[in-house]
Design a protein around this nucleic acid. Structure first.
Lengths: 206, 206
DNA sequence: TGTGATTGGATAGTGATACTTCCCAATATT
DNA sequence: AATATTGGGAAGTATCACTATCCAATCACA
């Protein structure tokens, strides 16, 4: 398959395929001469994944590059790899001052109330802190009751996810990292739809 | 309070306050002369809300303007207002062809399986369809089992939210629209943290 | 009452981002 | 032989969220 066929197959403009190639989001094809290379199914799949991460998840090119690197050659530590992957997901947050004794008070309190691990080096902790601070600044603070209600359900979802973790390490990393990212838009859409469903006055769950 | 005090109070650069004023994200102050106006607490609150929507939720200026318009003067129909608000939340989706008989097959199937209303005019339906299509394109399709698992928990969260709906209509719209948007980053952060918690091998919920 | 700071208002500039266009000489294809 | 396509690179474009600069009017203070 030549590059134009690859573009046609994925529905992307040729210039965009070249751009992703240049940016390292797509591995080069096998060069058959100075001006020719062949591409295969792995390139098609990768391009579709890149589009999903950029278009649906809303990542930037840099972040996609970072995520793909993790998926392509993960360490042997799933926990650490997951942590690194999350640090590349929006919203971006700054590292706290090294001297700050309690950089994420809201997040720490929330996690303690939920009985979950509190690891201030984990990027999602800073993301939670920023999100909670934003609700306060906007005048709609999350109550701890609501945090518990949300956290419990999301923990159940996470358990569901992790119960289905593939045994093979490489597949496990791919599943965890991509599943975290790709399913987030689904979650937001489902919540919006659930709100609509409840607002419409229907509540059919037994 | 003059404009420079407003900027100082909110921690925003003066130029940014002027920019939001120009873009209609902040209502003008009361002019006291040709070159002076006074601002009050409502301006402070509005600026903090704007920052939360842009910085934390990740909306663009246009979308914030649209959301604020809805909050400021909502119709009397909460359901319709919520629908309009969601249509301004990312990811943006195109309207389907008018001739398309079944524009959102994945979303329709998912909602039917969940027993929720399926209203193709509701923007979140298109968002769900796009998100599900992206998981398929990326090679990690959502199973219907997973959709049910997620959907059930998110419906519970929505019920929790709507049970706390303020009685007064204006407050109800504000609560629903802003709550939908502002709590989403919290939800994503909590899910990421729950994944981490499960991955760390701790599972303390009874 | 003068002097420097501040204001509303407007225009233009900036830096980042994600493409997109254009061009090239080498090579395929017909 | 004529035409099209390739890999590769450089430059251009569009959008976006600010940010900087300028202006004349007006304020605040000495």
């Amino acid at each position: 398959m030549r590059i134009s066929a690859l573009a046609a197959e994925t529905g992307l403009p040729l210039a965009t395929v070249k751009y992703y190639l240049r940016e390292g989001l797509l591995h080069p094809g096998v060069a058959t001469s100075a001006t020719q290379a062949t591409y295969d199914e792995t390139h098609v799949r990768r391009l579709l994944l890149v589009r999903a991460l950029i278009g649906s998840v809303g990542l930037g090119v840099q972040q996609v590059r970072a995520i793909l690197r993790l998926v392509d050659d993960p360490g042997d530590d799933l926990y650490a790899t997951l942590g690194r992957a999350v640090s590349h997901l929006p919203p971006a947050t700054e590292r706290p001052d090294a001297g700050d004794l309690d950089p994420f008070p809201r997040a720490r309190a929330a996690l303690e109330a939920l009985g979950q691990v509190y690891d201030p080096d984990y990027a999602a902790v800073a993301q939670l802190e920023a999100a909670l601070a934003a609700t306060e600044a906007a005048g709609m603070p999350m109550t701890s009751d609501r945090l518990l209600a949300y956290g419990r359900r999301l923990h159940e979802i996470a358990e569901y996810d992790l119960e289905r973790l593939p045994g093979e390490p490489h597949a496990a990393v791919e599943y965890t990292v991509l599943g975290t990212a790709l399913y987030e838009p689904v979650i937001l859409a489902l919540r919006r739809l659930a709100h609509q469903d409840v607002a419409a006055g229907r509540d059919l769950r037994g």
